[in-house]
Design a protein around this nucleic acid. Structure first.
Lengths: 202, 202, 202, 202
DNA sequence: CATGAATGAGGTTTCATTCAT
DNA sequence: AATGAATGAAACCTCATTCAT
């Protein structure tokens, strides 16, 4: 984990984990509300339940908080998907259920997804690439599944695009909530997208 | 235009237009590079070719710059689309050509689209809603076109979703460039998306 | 008049007088409302009915406006007093009527008096002294009247102090309005102050 | 104390008191010299012996400095008066000694009194009223003393007016120094004012 | 390990004044 | 004479970061 590369003054590894988890929890709730830039380190410390001094025992710069936060969100998504993506006998139905599972997760994690969409660009290049690689891995997992479940003759590029489309359509439910959620539910939305998708796969 | 509602100390309407255009141009190039929050008003003034004092003759707050910028980007998109959307005899082919035209525009306006995606959330509620309404209008235009060109039995909701998908798939080319543009060109991308879409419409 | 010493780009003397009168009128109403420091030159120009450029044809610095304003207020007071102070046959009664006349004037000019009290200190030393000399002259006029009307054996110093007391008690009605005007009228206030004064003179 | 209502980022109450006292001392010396508006927050910080950042740990806005300063000046006056006003057996002599004590205090606190006279109006309504109430209380204390020491038949209104006159005559020594202190000493001034006053009381 | 007071660079915004038209 | 757009110094205030306790 790259997380470990960010040095902490503190030695006790368990404590580091605990404090960073507190921090991420506090940060997410603040970033949801006001975004990264409008949130101060003092607020983060307070929301995390410790002092500003202590916060800086576990990070080097404010950007580290954003990094940890994005990282944690991606891990949460990945953890969920890994479970769902573990298919026994691939079939179109299992692809459908994977997609459903993913869309419903996006519905639950709407706010966190918004954070990713809006703030990742504030990370510096190197860190941003590290974070995005995590999404890349997930997209590739999805590609595998499509290959396995819908093995019609399709080029690698087409499958890759389908995987991306599915990924974005899940996130879209979050970042276009102002338009999509005015008149639809996650269930109806999922239903329709899957319908279109299956036609595309045909 | 809501633009007019933002007061300027300056009275000459033509000059206001000219200066605000300079400002938008300067701001876009800076926002592309470092985002809204990391750009200072001093930098905006300089990039616009006038002094900080002059900048504030044409805006009230820094947020106004973001507002003008987003507004201008949306207007640029809309202006283009209005032309492309003006169909003579609707057919599947004309739908395809509309989509192509839109995708190619997104390719040209990549950086601007990124600004929209990342910074609109920094506008205050009221202004943000005003800006998003512009996108809503465009989505509705696309819905009309789909109805006209692909008049198979489809529910209003399905058409709305298709319009949204098309819209997002265009923008996606910009905001997922790090993954999509590594291995594809706008032409190939457009081709494939249209292929999937036509299947969905079938 | 020192006013004339403040150069104006404009040559036409009548116009200068007219413009400065407009300016003073505008300035007084603004200073009443928000004080000298919180009033901007732009606001003064607007309230005076001309442009900021024109304002600066008739003054050199913002402080000049304050100077003209204080000067005009003092002149207004003096003009009034000169009439009232012109006694035919001096007597205690005529002293009383002079005081009454002064107090009632202070009542009418409350806001202007407040400007003097609060803003004269913002004038630079030299100008301030020039302005205060005008009050000194008025106090001396009052001393003459006391001498003439209440010719009991009193030292020069005592008379000077009485004159000052009377002057301040008139202004007090304005600058202590928050305490005095809650429960009294100018008539009752004048009555009582005169009663005490006559005892002091006895 | 209302002071406590103004939040400080700092938690240590003793430190807050200490720093605010430093601040008030620094501010008074600057306000004496150049007034509130012409004094910058940086100057206040420097004169207080700490950085601009630290200053803002103990206040929210520049106006708070003025508020603390006025409040401190009034408290200093009140503290002094409370001692002097504590009479054992009331008599005309004790009234005279109270007045003397007050006038001499005004002589010592001339500059501070000037600050009150010129700057209180810069406080926002609510705060200004809170500050003025402190003066009101002192005036009422003086009314009590007059009642006790000079119990001739006098109306409540007359006593109130006398108390106000005494108060203003003390402050006058400060704010009319340019005229009064040219030719008199505080001793002579006090003597004469008391003489007039006793006649008024007769 | 934890705390929180201190720091000061740097952000946004204002406004007196000038000068070309 | 009148205008008003342009200027930029300087104001207030914030906040990431440090470090003595």
């Amino acid at each position: 984990m790259m997380q470990d590369k960010i040095l902490s003054t503190v030695k006790d590894q368990e404590l580091i984990k605990k404090r960073r988890d507190q921090m991420i929890k506090g940060a997410i709730s603040l970033f949801k509300e006001k975004g990264f830039h409008r949130t101060t380190t003092r607020e983060i410390a307070k929301a995390s339940g410790f002092s500003i001094g202590t916060l800086y025992e576990y990070i080097r710069t404010k950007e580290d908080v954003l990094y940890f936060t994005c990282d944690a969100i991606y891990d949460q998504v990945r953890k969920h998907l890994e479970k769902a993506f573990h298919l026994e006998n691939p079939s179109l139905e299992s692809l459908v259920s994977v997609i459903k599972s993913y869309f419903y997760l996006m519905n639950e994690m709407q706010e966190e997804i918004l954070i990713l969409y809006q703030e990742v660009k504030s990370l510096k290049k190197e860190t941003r690439e590290y974070i995005l690689k995590k999404e890349l891995v997930m997209v590739e997992m999805l590609e595998q599944i499509i290959f396995a479940c819908a093995p019609q003759e399709k080029s690698k590029e087409e499958v890759a695009l389908l995987a991306n489309n599915i990924f974005v359509q899940g996130q879209m439910w979050a970042f276009r909530r102002w338009i999509l959620q005015r008149q639809s539910t996650i269930e109806a939305y999922t239903e329709r997208q899957i319908k279109f998708l299956l036609k595309s796969l045909a």
